[in-house]
Amino acid sequence: MRHITEISSKVEPVTFVEDELELSFRYWYGEHYGRFYAELRDNRRILGMRCEKCGSVLLPPRPYCGFCHAPLRTWVELSDKGAVDTFSIVHTPNAKELIETPYACAMIKLDGCDVPLYHLLGEVEFKDILTGMRVTAVWEEVRKGALRDIRYFRPSEQRSIRSD
């Protein structure tokens, strides 16, 4: 009963299937991130949280401690100055974001905070960047409520090192 016939013809196989997908994502901020980004945008203030149990001061602000998992309640204002923990000069273009390469990025420990913040470095020759270097945030004039409301961190001036 089967209607099977041998394939007689020779066709050139299709080697690839191509497709395009456009996706829209929505992530809910929740109370902690919401407050953090509002303060960043409206008051140029960087807010972290202090753990009452282990004493750590943490970024990003979350309802629990990243180190000891205790609930967090205490907000603290952090300095927009800090020190370079580690850095890299990046030559690979990013997938989505158009930062002109090469650029310098760093993990920066803000004064009073126990975990570093990833950000960009600016107003500095690559060869002059050192771990431990003091840096200060340069804020954008128009801020949207994102970490990029800080344009980058630049080396702190001599006098600010002394005043630090």
């Binding site: 850095f87 890299s88 990046v90 690979t92 990013n94 997938a95 989505k96 990025c105 990833y118 970490l147």
Partner: peptide, 19 residues
Amino acid sequence: LWDLGFDYPQSTLAGLQAR
């Protein structure tokens, strides 16, 4: 909500780690 502000490839993380 935190790291999406920067879109850096794995090699950048490795560079920071190596330094």
